[in-house]
Amino acid sequence: MLSDEDFKAVFGMTRSAFANLPLWKQQNLKKEKGLF
């Protein structure tokens, strides 16, 4: 599990902003970052 700081560094957004994205968009971002 990423820390909040690492999460923001990897995804360029906060966890709450990420959580507001549609599920497909979350999955695409995870795949792009190799976290899926």
Rank of each mutant, 00 (worst) to 15 (best):
M1I: 14
M1K: 12
M1E: 13
M1N: 12
M1A: 10
M1V: 11
L2F: 10
L2V: 08
L2R: 06
L2D: 07
L2K: 04
L2H: 06
S3V: 04
S3K: 06
S3H: 04
D4T: 03
D4W: 05
D4H: 04
D4M: 04
E5T: 06
E5W: 07
E5L: 11
D6Y: 09
D6R: 07
D6I: 09
D6F: 08
D6K: 09
D6T: 07
D6S: 07
D6H: 09
F7E: 00
F7Y: 05
F7W: 07
F7L: 01
F7M: 02
F7N: 00
F7A: 00
F7D: 00
K8Y: 15
K8G: 03
K8L: 15
A9M: 12
A9Q: 10
A9S: 10
A9R: 15
A9Y: 11
V10M: 14
V10W: 11
V10S: 05
V10T: 09
V10G: 02
V10I: 15
V10P: 00
V10H: 12
F11V: 04
F11W: 07
F11R: 00
G12E: 04
G12F: 01
G12M: 02
M13F: 06
M13A: 01
M13W: 03
M13L: 05
M13H: 03
M13G: 01
T14Q: 03
T14F: 02
T14R: 01
T14I: 04
R15W: 04
R15D: 03
R15F: 04
S16G: 11
S16P: 07
S16E: 15
S16N: 10
S16F: 11
A17R: 05
A17C: 12
A17K: 06
A17H: 07
F18P: 00
F18E: 01
F18W: 05
F18K: 00
F18S: 00
F18A: 01
F18G: 00
F18D: 01
A19Y: 15
A19I: 09
A19K: 10
A19W: 06
A19Q: 12
A19D: 14
A19H: 12
A19M: 14
A19G: 10
A19F: 13
A19T: 08
A19S: 10
N20K: 15
N20T: 11
N20R: 12
N20A: 14
N20Q: 15
N20F: 05
L21W: 02
L21N: 01
P22N: 02
P22L: 02
P22H: 01
P22E: 05
P22D: 05
W24L: 07
W24Q: 05
W24S: 07
K25Y: 10
K25M: 15
K25F: 11
K25T: 11
K25G: 04
Q26G: 01
Q26K: 05
Q26D: 00
Q26S: 02
Q26H: 01
Q26I: 02
Q26W: 00
Q26T: 00
Q27K: 10
Q27A: 13
Q27S: 09
Q27L: 14
N28P: 01
N28S: 14
L29V: 06
L29R: 02
L29A: 03
K30C: 15
K30T: 12
K30G: 08
K30D: 05
K30E: 13
K31T: 10
K31P: 03
K31F: 11
K31W: 12
E32P: 03
E32D: 09
E32I: 11
E32Q: 12
E32N: 08
E32V: 07
K33P: 04
K33D: 04
K33S: 10
K33C: 06
G34W: 06
L35S: 08
L35V: 13
F36Q: 11
F36A: 12
F36K: 09
F36G: 13
F36D: 13
